[in-house]
Design a protein around this nucleic acid. Sequence first.
DNA 1: GATGAATGAGACTTCATTCAT
DNA 2: TATGAATGAAGTCTCATTCAT
Lengths: 213, 213, 213, 213
Amino acid sequence: MSTAPSPVPARRRADAQRNRDRIIATAHLAFIRHGIGVPMEEIARGAEVGVGTLYRHFADREALLRAVIAAGLERLMTVSRQETDHATDPWGALCRFVRRCVELRLGGTLSALRPRMAQAMKEIAELADARQRMLELLDPLVRGAQERGQMRTDVSTGDMIILIGMLVRHECELTEDKEWITRRHVEIVLDGLRPGGGELPGPTVTLTDFHHD
Amino acid sequence: MSTAPSPVPARRRADAQRNRDRIIATAHLAFIRHGIGVPMEEIARGAEVGVGTLYRHFADREALLRAVIAAGLERLMTVSRQETDHATDPWGALCRFVRRCVELRLGGTLSALRPRMAQAMKEIAELADARQRMLELLDPLVRGAQERGQMRTDVSTGDMIILIGMLVRHECELTEDKEWITRRHVEIVLDGLRPGGGELPGPTVTLTDFHHD
Amino acid sequence: MSTAPSPVPARRRADAQRNRDRIIATAHLAFIRHGIGVPMEEIARGAEVGVGTLYRHFADREALLRAVIAAGLERLMTVSRQETDHATDPWGALCRFVRRCVELRLGGTLSALRPRMAQAMKEIAELADARQRMLELLDPLVRGAQERGQMRTDVSTGDMIILIGMLVRHECELTEDKEWITRRHVEIVLDGLRPGGGELPGPTVTLTDFHHD
Amino acid sequence: MSTAPSPVPARRRADAQRNRDRIIATAHLAFIRHGIGVPMEEIARGAEVGVGTLYRHFADREALLRAVIAAGLERLMTVSRQETDHATDPWGALCRFVRRCVELRLGGTLSALRPRMAQAMKEIAELADARQRMLELLDPLVRGAQERGQMRTDVSTGDMIILIGMLVRHECELTEDKEWITRRHVEIVLDGLRPGGGELPGPTVTLTDFHHD
DNA sequence: GATGAATGAGACTTCATTCAT
DNA sequence: TATGAATGAAGTCTCATTCAT
């Protein structure tokens, strides 16, 4: 078709990758905006590809959802390492990390997983993985902050992860022009984690508590 | 109209009312457990009535959802008045109220309304009403607690209502055997509302902020 | 409940009859206005009775439809005898009869029978009966008019009956404020039945042609 | 774009078009035979496609109905131009046109539109259009015939269109083996339009009378 | 690889009819 | 006898997924 030395074969890959990325980005927004049940065709339309293309990349809705989550977590981990590596101020690093999590807006997609899947959660390897990695990331910060008396000692890293989930979802309940409200509430929660609060009921949250939630 | 037994006239009505109640109760659970999209037939089956009966009582899924919410809010308001009437200890009353809200498990149904309806919310008169009534209920408590120095003064009753929403939904993300975790986090948030926290970004949440959220 | 010598028992029958009549009248209108498929409940509502009452009087939709038709035909036959008895002017009587048929507005209901029932027609005894009676009524008029040279001789009474059906349905296609149009077209058809027209294709319509239409 | 065979590019489109055509043809018959309420699935089955395909082509029953009508009117206009162009005998052309209308069997579908839509009619652009086009087509014929004394002068083109509607629907009331009856009655009506008839009541039908019928 | 038409299972909703009061 | 609540079959429509081009 063309006389130039075919630059096509390499391009193909690039196009496909670009499609894949656009689909994930579109799906992320669509899941947040219209719920986990958005018609696949709407996602395809948003990404400006045919449904067929969407299905070539992701076997079914579940697979797409997992990919969206994985992509989000990837971004989260990248970002968070920047915040936390070589932290000399563990409490400050913890705070920045929490604020970042909220800003990434993963909440909508993550909480979309809830219905019917309390247990299906476990089957999504990416999630368990991410929690594990997040635990490893946060644990030194939590301990460090507690040792320095910057943080109450009756909460665990497990509590932190669940609280982050709460804030992240909270953000997604608000319309875009009201996001500033979440920022206030993030700070309130962080203040609640400072030493000097009242007694907390029950034991701290541990890794094993994640097995069923 | 009279106190006499009068057994005959109101009979069938009673059956119908019982059905209506069972449908609402079943739907409440179903919405929480399987999401807002549960097949209507499953709800009907759970309530042990035919689909037709369900539809005689509620014109469509939306109507049922609204009824479930209205019923929940009714319970909430009843309960909350018990907690807050004649309160001599505003902060204590506020805390008990928050804990109660969480225990009532309205969160699942309420947050089920989110997708596609950030603004449709307004059209659900019951919700706007309830927020207004809640505001009126809480405002004296918040002010009272703040006047006595029991609560930070840079949060408003509007913030409180949104925070309650957050906790209430948080509770519903957890499986039944992990509810105790929420109780811990409720206390952390309450601690964060005590005086002495860091500065909060943005203005306090006011009534007008509800118009779009 | 009352002190007067109970006038109730006799009233009951009267009430029931009144209900029956109201149902038929309402159904007649409803069939014409909303088609043969109107919800039974709508008919009941229009007649201001419960569905149950409707079903006590008429076993099912079909039965109601037949009753409506029978009532209409009854009125038609009554009226038409007034027009045609002792007629000394057969053509004039025929014309008056045709105009009356149209005015009675049976068309909607009659034509409602069409779909799916080309043959079911035969099963509705009332219809076959009525056609037979109409035939007996009109035959002398047609023959009389033809003998006097007032009417073309290449049409039969069978043609007349079918033409009347056409005009009667025609009337029902027009909205109420356009009924006057039908009156014009009735006259055009009657003019077309006068002697002197062009040749007509096919044989005249006979009784046996009704068996399948 | 080119006259060359170009076998590849338009292929699937052809299949889709074939499906669309078959659906319309099947629906036309089904509407006539079983009424406007035929199950969509039956139409799909008749056209040998899945329901989904039917719905991909036509958003709902209404849309399908409109398409059927549009297709019918298209055929009608094509055919009628053949009859009427360059007519040197206006009355003869008018007669041939009327006979053609009846033969095309559009009546069933057109009259299926009646219930509940006396006014909705206007919203079906195709219908209003067609009436307008038909008016323009017939008007010269009517005037020509009247000027030559071949047609009574107290009827208008508006009357003609409504009469055609009557005959067209009339044809559809009869079973297939009785179609010959309509042909007789068409001639009777045409004879009634000849000069010399009795006086007609009311004014002639004008364009403005269509606005509400 | 991309496309979008076709498919059919399944959810939603309506209504004719029954039945307990 | 009248009532209207309950039932469930049947029809409409949507959408995930497949597949021919």
